[in-house]
Design a protein around this nucleic acid. Structure first.
Lengths: 235, 235
DNA sequence: CGCGTGCTTGAACATTATCAAACAGTGTGG
DNA sequence: CCACACTGTTTGATAATGTTCAAGCACGCG
């Protein structure tokens, strides 16, 4: 897991790194390899939609590199992000008929795209594959239920801290910092807040010397334990 | 679906109806019958816990009759309900190691309980069963994502109306009324509100002649279309 | 250098929470 | 059978958290 970060570092002065670490990790993931033969690799530009809510749900996807957002809109324009999708995440599984939400690239992203009918056929033919995907979706369900608690019962600061730790944990369980690929607007719509409240929350955490903000998207954890406490919901 | 309501009506003067409609529906559900042989039937008294968060996740359950709540607590006592469980709902699937939340009976409930190791063995041996459960969990995931939007971006009134319509739809897609089995406290913790806000919201809807409240738990829809509009989020 | 975008900061406002009390329905014991 | 207590719901007054509206700032790019 830290491997990916380290290798990415070797390429950071190049213009467009080809993300070899991800590709290698992908190849070494043997448990879903029957699936790999069914898919094609696609690239999505920043802020472009991979799927639009309402489209027929013809494909299932896996993130290879980059970051994406699952977006839902209310008729009057209110926006909500169900999740951020990162390398190795699957999406498009939960919708059988039409997609219930859009998926857009936060940063340029590479995906594997699998035709749903072939995906379904694989599930029907191989119990170990469908059992594995049951685990994948169960994990997504548990994470989504966790988020329900965050949106339903946590304060702005608690939501923000939970989000920061969650993003950091995707790289490493003890990472001392995160680089956020998404804007304040995305964070706000993910946490059910406004961009102003997100900004104020970060400013407040910085003034309390709990985090540092060298740039708006680079968060350094100065007191991880304090963050863990806040995220755990100790009033 | 309306059948269950009608039959329940025949027994409503008796002390403890035996819920024959549910039992019959259960028998007619053939698609998961391989599972039925693995389980035992258990009864849970009102406000008693079936599982406690943190317990080893040894079983998977299906609701036969009654209503239950999935409960999560923050260290300082804040409470959140992930979902209400109604007849034919499965639970305990998403947690593989320890249960992440408690499940308690809102009203006396009858359940089927399946040992997880035998359940897993069935999933591994039969692709059609594991595919079917993938569909079940995908449906739960889609519903939970829908709830994220409700908690993240909807006002108190919108949450309440969405909840009322959702509960009514469990009986029938066009039911003109609902009998709520749960308390205001449960509704509040489900919607991320306080009991006072729930109560005020219902009072307000009644004063606008959109619903009627013959008793606190009996909601009659006077203007369904207005409710649908509010729930859809048309500001 | 100037414009555009996204982030931050400030002041007034709104919605919902909190605290407090009254009310209704149910079951119990006198 | 009624009085009482208990629980859950409603209603009211005040406070707090987060939103809205508005302006200023910083960085990147032409």
């Amino acid at each position: 897991m830290t491997y990916q970060t380290a290798v990415a570092g070797q390429f950071e002065t190049r213009r467009r790194p080809v993300e070899p670490a991800v590709a290698m990790r992908h190849m070494s993931t043997t448990s879903v390899s029957p699936l790999d033969r069914l898919g094609v690799r696609i690239v999505v530009a920043r802020n472009k939609a991979v799927i639009e809510g309402g489209d027929p749900a013809d494909h299932v996807f896996k993130v290879v590199s980059g970051a994406l957002r699952m977006v839902r809109l209310l008729p009057d324009g209110r926006r909500h992000l169900s999740s951020f999708l990162m390398p190795d995440d699957f999406f498009g599984l939960a919708d059988s008929d039409a997609y219930s939400q859009s998926v857009e690239a936060v940063s340029e992203a590479t995906l594997m795209r699998y035709p749903r009918h072939r995906f379904e056929a694989l599930l029907n033919s191989d119990a170990s594959v469908s059992h594995r995907f049951l685990d994948v979706v169960c994990g997504q369900l548990a994470a989504t239920q966790e988020r329900l608690l965050v949106l339903g019962r946590m304060t702005a600061t608690e939501r923000l801290v939970t989000f920061l730790l969650g993003m950091a944990d995707r790289k490493s369980r003890t990472a001392p910092e995160v680089e956020l690929p998404m804007s304040r607007a995305d964070i706000a719509d993910y946490l059910g807040l406004t961009i102003e409240t997100v900004s104020r929350g970060l400013t407040d955490l910085r003034s309390r010397r709990i985090i540092d903000l060298p740039t708006p998207n680079h968060i350094v954890f100065l007191k991880r334990q304090a963050l863990e406490q806040i995220s755990a919901g100790n009033a």
